[in-house]
Amino acid sequence: MWEYTDKVKEHFLNPRNVGTIENADGTGEVGSLACGDALTLTLKIDDEVITDARFKTFGCASAIASSSALTEMIKGKTVAEAEKITNEDIADFLGGLPKEKMHCSVMGREALEAAIANYRGVVLPMAEGEVVCECFGVTDLEIIRAIKESNLRSVEEITNFTKAGGGCGKCQDRLEEILRATHAKSLTQIKAPEKTRRLTNIQKIKLIEDALEREIRPALRKDGGDIELVDVDGDFVIVSLRGACGSCKKSQTTLKEYVEKKLREQVLDTLIVEEGK
């Protein structure tokens, strides 16, 4: 069973703004019956302000809740303001969605874009592109956009957000290519520090020690704990928690949620932290 937030459940059971606006100023239709979810969004727009929004959705609880949330979010906003809403905003509004259901929020965002494009009388560039996933009709432009906007890091994440690759799976190699190409481009564009750099073990140990000393150890000491680097074996960083951390029941959370996260940010994003006694 999915772990839905109370807000998702509430919007699912009591969806707001269900229906279709007659003579709508903008209409967006996305998804299909074959895909398992679909959304039709209609907007009433007066003087660039969205005065009414109605939806009809075929889909699971999170698809219905995302649609309901979207209509609540955009009512009263100007078209320009509404345009800035991302799928992450929709998910946040609902207090989060299970990761496998993120595509439901993406569907909301796409319907909104389609409705605004329809209002302005323009054609969405997304509809052009080359279809990569034939099962769900997802184009390369949509995939690239999702990778950039939600900083997707794996084919699995692409599937969670766009559904691409979730059917027969034949396009997964192509998704991998798009993922690499998209990240490579963004790296050269913003000249981000190279995270996938190859380090010798000595360099790695040095950087890890630095990060521990500079930030991680002081933070743990505040709670009466401490940490020691035991070994570095490839991507595996073996550490030992000392002091109060050693006997703390939450030490695994500290290790994964804090230490590993920090080391990934500051040293190498492939690192895996493990405890050695």
Binding site: D37, G59, A63
Partner: peptide, 22 residues
Amino acid sequence: EGEAILLHLDRYGICASSGSAC
């Protein structure tokens, strides 16, 4: 969609299952 049906049934304490994707 099946999941939506199941969640509504669940509110009445009715347990069933679905072949739906979701």
